[in-house]
Design a protein around this nucleic acid. Structure first.
Lengths: 342, 342
DNA sequence: GTTAGCACTCACCTCCTTTGAGTGCTAAGT
DNA sequence: ACTTAGCACTCAAAGGAGGTGAGTGCTAAC
């Protein structure tokens, strides 16, 4: 069966109406609301064809049609017209993102919040792995008899700290001394490189000084390795509750519980891949059963021309794709700009 | 009307049954399940009295009775028998809380998680204000031409860091120099004291060196002041969805949205006061309209014999008070112990 | 003071009917 | 050959009627 223009127009009208109202759409509604110049009977015939092609379906015999997952797919790929954002909204985004933010992570977190606010869906933003970043500073500060604080500063402005408990007391001077050696040797290297054996070399240099450095090095190594990981921000999770398709607590509970697990979020975003450009995953294209009634729109943001993270919105399959895509698109742009300026 | 022992026994039976089943409890059920040695008719008479006294109420004419807010109050104050925790659970709590945690905040956060897991309700934990803690270290690290990282280490193991953007470039040596001066002057002082003019004194000392210190000091002051605040952890928010009384999305949405606001959480916990001991707020005793179907059980935890924070569980008014109270009680004890050892 | 007995209430369930939106098919119109 | 009007048909949803049962309050007897 061939997909002529009239079928396309009918499919588009049906999807737009369904997205707007949430009710199954009948032939009469389409004939009346969207002037296609044909009667409802004709539209009925065409709809029968569209159903045969798998693009729309009937929830039950005497109801109108709703788009199938493939219908949404076709719409997103071929029919959707991007709805340009108003200058006002663009300005709003840019104003907020350029408002004196000096830490990369704060900027990214803000983007997540903005994304969920603007779309009224749930936002996911993956913060880049720190593995490739270079150390600007590594510093140990004495805290107590046998406690020190390890502070790691990366060249992207990211700061991590961790308290370490040593199994033996240590003098303040020694802490400063070790700190200095660490700094001299590790400054400018990436975390990845620090991990790969370099710490051992360093150990040799310091071993001449103190016999218990071995243990300190181990702890530092663990701390560094543990920090070399992605992080995901989730925003507007409760927006899901606004959606009529999730008005039943039992239905939405599993989804919300799923979203509370960080590993899942990483999976979901990682599934979108690293290629640049906007991607849309519809219904069961997503990796989790609980998300079969959801769609995910993602894009990647960059720093120095390289993809460093992914961001996206998660909503019901019946989501406002055109609006959401525009927002994701512009926010990605604004975030990339923001990062560049940093 | 006087509250004789039989009335008490009936009220207790009714509340226990209602908490267990969630259904209104009739006279026959009480007569059968809880052997009080009297017939259902007698119980009916007593229940009429209890209703007159405002302790129980009927959802509608031909239904059983449910406890009123005052009924719960009376139960919690006079009738409730604390259910001792099994040694197993106690050990579980203590094991988890003593598992190599060296940062106060991590310990507190873990307590929150534990609390929601064990009770299946929502947990709130307020982290103490940092104002009274002493500075162990204050350190500036150069990051970039005109960016520095401020790291503040407190004597309780808490570490805060913040990136500062200076409106002018600064040399690494100067950063270290300032850092040293700050350290020498502020070490051992509480944040409160740092704020109160001391920074200005310090400014005089440094002003002889560099003219732009003024601005640095301002930034540091802002950073310190902003950090002197309470923080609240929320755990198991979605547990609310498990409760049959919140099976309607519209009912639970407002509550969940309320709980997402940190200010609200602070209010709610602050409302419980600072006196030591377990407190129970039932239904509309809570400060927010959205919580009129919830009860909150709180307790305070201590360090060095002084109250430093509050922790609690929030559940439906029909919550398992005896179990929840026991868990809150023991967890408070375990957390206080854990903090002491730190 | 307690209890058995009884009339009464009312939410809830089930069954039935009505309603209306929507369909598919057919035959007539262009 | 496509389009359309007309019609019979389907089925979810809404509304109503009747039955059920848990529970109550009252009264009279123990």
């Amino acid at each position: 069966m061939k997909m002529d223009e009239r079928k396309q127009r009918i499919l588009q009208a049906l999807i737009l109406d369904y997205i707007a109202t949430g009710d199954p759409v009948g032939s009469r509604t389409i004939a009346k609301k969207y002037k296609l110049g044909v009667s409802s009977a004709t539209i009925r015939n065409e709809m029968a064809d569209l159903e045969e092609m798998g693009l729309i379906e009937q929830p039950h015999t005497s109801a109108g049609r709703i788009p199938s997952q493939f219908g949404y797919r076709y719409y997103v790929d071929c029919l959707m017209e991007k709805k340009p954002l108003s200058e006002q909204v663009k300005k709003y985004i840019q104003d907020i993102l350029s408002d004196k933010i000096s830490e990369m992570e704060a900027l990214i977190q803000l983007s997540s919040k903005l994304l969920s606010q603007l779309t009224n869906y749930t936002s996911l933003v993956m913060v880049p792995s720190l593995g490739k970043n270079k150390l600007t500073h590594i510093q140990l500060l004495p805290l107590d008899n046998n406690k020190v604080v390890l502070v790691v500063v990366l060249d992207n402005g990211h700061v991590e700290h961790r308290s370490l408990e040593l199994p033996f007391p240590i003098r303040d001077e020694d802490v400063y001394y070790i700190s200095q050696i660490l700094n001299n040797n590790l400054q400018g290297l990436s975390i990845e490189k620090c991990k790969s054996g370099l710490l051992k070399t360093l150990y040799n240099e310091l071993a001449q000084q103190k016999h218990f450095l071995n243990e300190i090095m181990e702890i530092i190594e663990t701390a560094l390795v543990a920090k070399d990981d992605h992080k995901v921000y989730l925003g507007g999770m409760l927006n899901m509750l606004e959606q009529p398709e999730f008005k039943d607590v039992d239905k939405v509970k599993d989804l919300l519980e799923l979203l509370e697990e960080e590993k899942v979020l990483k999976d979901v975003l990682a599934g979108a891949g690293q290629e640049t450009g906007i991607k849309v995953k519809i219904g069961s294209e997503n990796p989790y059963e609980e998300m079969k009634n959801c769609s995910l729109i993602t894009a990647t943001y960059e720093l120095d021309g390289k993809v460093i993270g992914t961001l996206g919105v998660l909503g019901p399959t019946r989501m406002e794709y055109s609006k959401a895509v525009s927002i994701v698109e512009f926010l990605t742009y604004a975030l990339t700009e923001g990062l560049r300026k940093l």
